[in-house]
């Protein structure tokens, strides 16, 4: 059964005359990891907010169609009801920090307190999330005394502690160093293997190609394509949508190197090595 069902979703922000999301229909199965790509302004962040109900409940505006997440219809459910099933990590970690807590530990506890999770379980979940994100040593720091990258880790830990069925990540590692970013992606991958459904808006195409099983290409609020990374990144017209494929795909395209019998170009390091070795 599909974990997310979107039917003819249309949305317009209150101050705008243009549709930010224009007639989107798709389904996502449990345990999938979906990459959302497209130029800035294509609708990636708006779509992320539509899964958690901030669109339309917080932003208001004009809304049509239907979004169902984990069996809850977004339009008919409150943001707090949805928060029990769907967690979101915002693009800017500074936006996510509550500002009402004095330590990293309490900040991660915030969501759990609001859900009324028992104390013992709260402690376990916080410890797990802090450890998963490598933030234990900063547990007593003030949230605003963290560096940008540490704050981003804390924001992710806060959401993971909620154990959502669906995890929505809006450029979750933009401020992390390369190894830190890779660690977060591995952690998310592990959660996915445990059954979590993940939606990821991201500009790092190499990461998308490596970790996502399907990629949605958005432009002007419309779905241009929704298929395997290999299929989407092999499109000859990608740059028209403001997107550049992973470097592996670019090199292979330039050399016209494809795996025998495949219509698509390689999208990961391993695939590229396979078709390019011996050159």
């Amino acid at each position: 059964m599909s974990k997310i069902r979107v039917e003819h979703l249309k949305y317009r922000y209150p101050s705008s005359e243009k549709l930010a999301l224009d007639d989107l229909s798709f389904e996502v199965d449990e345990g999938e990891m979906i990459g959302i790509i497209g130029r800035n302004g294509a609708g990636k962040s708006t779509l992320c907010q539509a899964f958690v109900g901030l669109v339309p409940h917080f932003y208001r505006g004009a809304y049509g169609g239907k979004v169902v997440v984990s069996g809850l219809e977004v339009l008919k459910s409150s943001v707090s009801q949805l928060a029990r099933r769907v967690g979101i990590v915002f693009q800017n970690p500074f936006t996510q920090v509550t500002g009402s807590k004095w330590t990293v530990y309490e900040e991660v506890a915030f969501g759990l307190e609001n859900l009324g999770v028992p104390r013992k379980e709260m402690i376990d979940r916080i410890d797990y999330a802090l450890q998963l994100l490598g933030m234990e040593k900063y547990r007593d720091r003030h949230p605003f005394d963290l560096s940008g990258g540490q704050m981003q880790r804390m924001a992710i830990a806060s959401v993971i502690a909620l154990q959502p069925e669906i995890l929505v990540l809006d450029e979750p590692t933009s401020q992390l160093d390369p190894q830190g970013s890779e660690e977060v992606f591995r952690a998310v991958h592990r959660l996915r293997e445990e059954g979590m459904t993940v939606i990821l808006a991201e500009h790092n195409m190499e990461k998308i190609a490596r970790y996502c099983n399907r990629v949605m290409l958005l432009d002007g609020g419309k779905i241009i394509d929704f298929a395997s990374p290999a299929s989407v990144f092999s499109r000859a017209d990608l740059t028209r949508y403001g997107v550049v494929p992973p470097v592996y795909t670019r090199v292979c395209r330039e050399l016209n190197a494809k795996r025998e019998g495949s219509p698509h170009f390689p999208v990961t390091l391993e695939e590229a090595c396979e078709v390019l070795k011996g050159r």
């Binding site: 992973p246 090595c273 070795k277």
Partner: peptide, 19 residues
Amino acid sequence: LQRAGLEVPHITRLGWSLG
């Protein structure tokens, strides 16, 4: 770079992986 929490650029990695 490894010790410093960093990685080599993607293109560098591809070149090395190809020998």
